[in-house]
Every structure is written in C-alpha cells, then in structure tokens.
Computed example of a mutant assay.
Amino acid sequence: MRGRQTVRDMVLSLAVIGVLVGAIYFFIPHDDSSDAEMGAVKRVDYRVELITARRAAPYPVAAPEGLPKTWRATSVSYKASDDGKGGAWHLGMLDPERQYASIEQSDATAKDFIKDVTLGATKVAGKQAVGSKKWDRYQGEKYRALVREESGVTTVVTGTAPYGRLADLAAALVAKKG
C-alpha cells in the first residue's frame, strides 16, 4: 500500500506544479510579436562618435543625412590605425525591411579592406548608379556591397539589404572633415 501512495502523491505534486507554471506563464506579460523583435535591437545615437571620427580621420567621414526614421542605427565605431595616420569608420543600420546595412570607410589598402568588411564578397559585372556617381558592385555568400574607391579613402556600403536599399543609403551619405 505504501508504494501506491508514493506514486499517487508524485502525480498530484506534478499536477500542482503544472498548474502553477501555467498560471505564471498566463499572468506574466510577454510579447512574441514582430514589434517586440524590432524593439530588441537597440537604436544607437552616433552623433558623438561621428564628430570624433571626423576630427580624427585624415579623410572626410561619410554619414547619412535625411534618411527616413525607419532606418535605425544599431552600431557605431571609429578605430584609429596604430600609426595614427588613419583608421576605420563603421556605422551599422537596419533598413525599413529589417535588413542589415552598414557604412564602412578606411584609408587602408582597398583590396584587403573590402574583403574584410564584405566578408569575402567579390566584384561582379555592372555598376550601381548612385546620384551622378557609379559604384562597383560586390556579391558574397552573406553580404552584397557597393564600393567607391577615391583618393585616400575607400567607402563600402554593405550588408544583407538588396542593392536598391544599399544605393538609398549610399545616396544619403555626406562626407565631411571635422
């Protein structure tokens, strides 16, 4: 008789625990909607880093101006080179369709820099018109990119966003020296 009571008590205990867990799940707020997912990615204010980068970099640092509020900055950095002559600017964003796009700039060797920031993308045929300028197209397994090499600086607009969105971001870029 003792063995049956133990099994019966265990089943009752498990039932009570199950009801308790269900009540906790029901009464504690949680949001599985896409708005909650969007809110999980923090928006960053990149103004201070931009001013700092424009003062420190030996090239005009590009940042978007006039993009709709649906574009959200998510990461920003400026890393000076070891010799103090240049560095790398990065501004990561989510486009309105929640695709990643970033602005990468450096005065490092263009070939190595492009390979690094595009995760190994290679140049493909055709150019992308952005305003009055033509940008080279790159395509990789993960990222696509628009690349513009100018005297002393390489600008790369890269990410998972389609070329049209990357072109929208490139068109909004304004390069200034601080």
Rank of each mutant, 00 (worst) to 15 (best):
L20G: 11
G22V: 01
A23F: 02
A23R: 02
P29M: 02
H30S: 13
E37T: 13
K42F: 10
V44R: 03
R47F: 04
L50C: 04
L50V: 01
T52S: 13
A57W: 05
P58E: 13
E65N: 10
E65H: 10
G66L: 03
L67F: 09
T70A: 15
S77D: 15
S77N: 14
K79L: 14
S81H: 07
D83R: 11
G86C: 04
W89F: 03
L91T: 02
G92D: 02
M93E: 00
M93P: 06
D95E: 10
Q99C: 03
Y100S: 11
E104H: 06
Q105W: 02
Q105Y: 06
S106Y: 01
T109H: 12
A110E: 06
D112V: 10
F113E: 01
F113H: 07
V117D: 04
V117W: 02
L119D: 14
A121N: 01
T122S: 15
V124M: 10
V124H: 09
A125H: 12
A125L: 10
K127F: 03
K127T: 13
K127P: 00
Q128W: 09
Q128L: 07
Y138T: 08
Y138L: 11
E141T: 15
R144P: 01
E150N: 11
E150D: 15
S151H: 11
S151W: 05
V153F: 02
